[in-house]
Simulated assay, not measured.
Amino acid sequence: MNMYCPAARMLGGMTISAFPDMAGVILKYGLTSTFRDGFIPLIRNFKAVRLAGEEVKAAGTALDMVLDSRAMAFADVTDDFGRHSSFERGLASVSTRFGMVSLMAPWTAAMKQFSGLVVMTNILRSSERLAKGFPSPIEVRRLASASIDVVLAHRITAQFEKYGQKQGGVLLARAGDWDDAIAREAFRAAVVREVDRIIVTPGQDKPLWMSTELGKTIGQFKSFSVSSSQRIMLAGLQQRDAATLNGIMVSLGLGAFSYWAKERFADRELSDEPAQWVIEAIDKSGLTGWLMEVNAISEKVSRGTVGLSAITGKQISRYASRNATASLLGPSLGTVQDMINVAGSVATGSATKRDLHTARTLLPAQNLFYLRRLFDRVEAATGDSLALPER
């Protein structure tokens, strides 16, 4: 049960946090390929793009509208087994459907289908060039990373020439019609691998201790930062080309936009310090993986005396609503501390508006970005009607 409660009450803004997803395909293939193979067909030939999206789903990814797999992976609620009680099953149902409520599922499905369009085009084009003997070194490297060698490139190219179609710049593989099962499976596996790396979907790249019962509790909501360390930070350091530079710049811009949007939806004042904007952009971009996670925890636990906040004088916004226990030991244990604090304040008759806010944060969906201001108004009106002191 402890894995479900925090997801529905704390991840209401995860779609806004996912804005830097749009830079993932640029990090991998660069601006030229992203516009030539993605945005231009999207504008000129939307029907073919939709068919390509169906091809991506047939490969086994971009199925979040049905499976909601990415949102559940973010919340670490995908690997809990057992019969459980009716109450626990009810909480599980709320959490496993929260990706639809938060709009994370449609966002992820759209981003993966768009990325898959670019990925498929590049795999088919690079396979053809490798089969004909004039690939570029970067194409050889990309195909090798997807486990496609010269032999498989020949087989994939032959199947595409036999069954595939070219519609206004969109390469439709039509892999379901291929009669070479090995080529089909290799092609689809490469598509799924690349798409799930571009639109970071946490998988088995987290440390083993996070798979234990205690580790899952402490490490909840941290799977993305661990996965992005492997799939974005280390991959970019190895790639080291113009595409990486372009992707980094776009990621930082989208990270800054994500910070602006989240602060606006929360009705908080934006910082006037350029250094704060830089740190927030780096944090929200996901480029640094778990490094900024360590910084955020250090700032929260030390009350801003350790970490990048020592430079700006203000802690980063990511852990603004969490207490020190939640930051260090996970949101489930932080929830327990909040419940104890609220119960103690009510029992002793010393409840304040701060305690009311803590009680509000225990409600499911209270952090949904499009409902947050409504909850804020109800909270303010309740505090005034009860004549609660500020602190």
Rank of each mutant, 00 (worst) to 15 (best):
E263P: 07
D355V: 02
V94I: 11
G90F: 10
G330P: 01
L152N: 13
A243Q: 06
Y319W: 09
R264K: 11
L245T: 13
T212G: 07
S33F: 04
S229M: 15
A235M: 06
K216I: 01
S285Y: 01
S86L: 11
G383V: 01
A380I: 07
L362E: 02
R372M: 14
M339F: 12
G330T: 01
Q230D: 08
G255V: 04
Q220I: 03
A71G: 15
K206L: 13
Y370C: 04
M22F: 15
P135N: 02
P389C: 04
G344Q: 08
L27K: 08
Y4D: 05
G38Q: 02
Q337I: 14
S85R: 04
I218F: 02
T325S: 06
S86W: 13
R142C: 12
Y259C: 02
V151S: 15
G286E: 04
V342H: 03
F114P: 00
V140L: 13
G304A: 09
P207V: 05
R373P: 01
L103G: 07
I316K: 11
R50G: 14
D64V: 03
I156L: 02
Y259H: 04
F221Y: 01
R377A: 10
M104R: 10
W178V: 03
D267T: 08
L208V: 13
G304V: 01
R240T: 13
F35D: 05
F74P: 03
S332K: 00
L329T: 03
R264S: 09
R240F: 14
K314I: 04
A73I: 10
L124C: 08
M210D: 00
E213V: 15
A183Y: 05
P41G: 01
R377V: 14
W178P: 07
Q167R: 12
R240P: 11
T96Q: 09
T358P: 00
D384M: 09
S127D: 02
V56K: 04
F114M: 11
A359T: 04
A71R: 12
A243M: 05
S95A: 14
R360A: 10
R36V: 06
T157Q: 09
G90Q: 05
V77K: 12
F81K: 09
M72R: 13
E280I: 02
I26G: 05
A266H: 13
W107F: 12
F160H: 07
L214T: 03
A281N: 02
V191G: 00
A190M: 04
S17C: 10
